[in-house]
Design a protein around this nucleic acid. Structure first.
Lengths: 216, 216
DNA sequence: TAGATTGTTAATCGATTAACAATC
DNA sequence: TAGATTGTTAATCGATTAACAATC
């Protein structure tokens, strides 16, 4: 299908979807790329280029129909599918993600949680029980799990990822602070929180540096 | 100081630091850009270009001293500073971030947590008490808070950010699913988890699409 | 010294922006 | 029809890669 779209474009799609959702909520019927560009603080040209990677969703002289564009971007992002997911690591982060109801609205269904800590086994998040790690392989197969969320310390992550892949997982949302090495057919999305915090740290201190002269 | 370095470069620095940390742990003394490029799966050229934005840290014919390069990148990222931070929103995500000890190792000191939910007030994370939202302004001033972590639903986030800025916060680590509008001197780092999940969703479904023909 | 590898310039590639003809 | 705005091509800008002279 579509020739490989750059990840830069993909990264912007959820933000388009968010703004279009807000416009929908306000019952806005149509919007032009230039109006949207003002709201989103990007160029109108970029919006049109991005969208035209996937097809012509607008109409000359009119702009874009908000509802239609919203639903098209949803489709592009694969949000019309349902995905079953499990969470590996039932600490605070795992629980936070498991409890997040908006994911379910988008079609991501929490099927199970796992942890190696016996104290956590049997506890629940939204009615989903935490199970011991040994049960992961059988559970994946029995429940058609698509996505595994990895919220465990980096030490165990590489091995766990291997087990997940062996048992047919197709995607990993990786919060462990390590790069996973998986076959190309397994999609990995990394969320490295400490990297993000370091970026913030850089920007704070580089802003300070650049203002040293002006200070007094 | 340094002419504005692109955010693409900044984003790669924490990953360099992570690999150098691992090499340090293995007592590796020196490494060449090409050895590192193999480990990290990037080009040697990119490594050298990235580093030379900040100065010449290597030596011809030798490569880079691991310890030295590690400490230089730490400095660049501002990790030799101490930052005091507070967490606004003491739900599971807030608690997860508050409990993360590695942040403290990097110089990020959790000073307080806040929530508007009376049930949470008085509970603790690592000895840090959750306080009511009304106390935020006085607390920021009294405790020299640099960074606020925003782990509240998007509805309240814009208003809270306004209050934070008015009281002298210089940086916001924003987990609320909304774009904050703050003065240019306030640094914002966004972590939009649902955007990240949608990217994963795109990659799963576009991989499926691209293999439809091959299937059977 | 000879070999290795950096720092840096030049070439290439890709992404963003500008411009405008097509068309609703 | 006239005006507006897209879809798309062309121009620009920035980031990545390649190449190599400098130098340890």
């Amino acid at each position: 299908m579509d020739k490989d779209i750059s990840q830069a474009v993909i990264s912007r799609l959820p933000r388009y979807l968010r703004y279009l959702g807000e416009l929908k909520d306000k019952n806005v019927e149509r919007i032009s790329s230039s109006e949207l560009s003002v709201l989103m603080k990007v160029t109108a040209s970029q919006i049109r280029q991005d969208l035209n990677n996937f097809g012509g969703f607008g109409q000359q002289g009119y702009g874009y129909n908000v509802d239609y564009l919203y639903s098209e971007i949803s489709k592009i992002l694969g949000l019309e599918h349902q995905y079953n997911f499990i969470i590996i690591g039932a600490g605070n982060l795992g629980k936070a993600l498991g409890g997040y109801l908006n994911f379910e609205k988008r079609g991501f269904i929490l099927k199970g949680m796992f942890d190696k800590n016996p104290d956590l086994i049997g506890t629940e998040v939204r009615g989903v029980k935490v199970m011991p790690m040994e049960e992961v392989p059988a559970f994946i197969k029995a429940n058609n799990i698509d996505i595994a969320v990895l919220t465990i310390p980096k030490e165990g992550a590489v091995l766990v990822a291997k087990v997940l892949v062996e048992n047919g997982i197709r995607a990993i949302w990786n919060f462990a602070h390590v790069d996973l090495d998986v076959p190309e057919y397994v999609q990995v999305e990394n969320v490295h929180l400490s990297d993000s915090l370091m970026k913030l740290s850089y920007n704070i201190s580089s802003y300070m540096e650049s203002n040293k002269d002006k200070e007094q």
